[in-house]
Amino acid sequence: MGVDVKFFASMRDIIGDDCEIDAEILKAKSIKNVDDIWNYCAAGKERPANVLIAVNMDYVDAETLVKEGDEVAFFPPVTGG
């Protein structure tokens, strides 16, 4: 069991499709928080200042720690309603 990473709306256009980071990679790459997840998935692309982040569907900041089984999502400002 690893970490599921999701990208929505324009973030998916920038970074690509959803992915899963397996437990071995988490350990090998010392991925500990949301910022590490972004850096691994984005392959050098800078994180936009206005990107919103959720872990297990709750809003968090980039310093939030992640663990195996978590779902991490990156998305732009919301525009519903």
Partner: peptide
Amino acid sequence: LKSKAPFWKK
């Protein structure tokens, strides 16, 4: 809803 619910328009 408009500022926090995760919906996006294209």
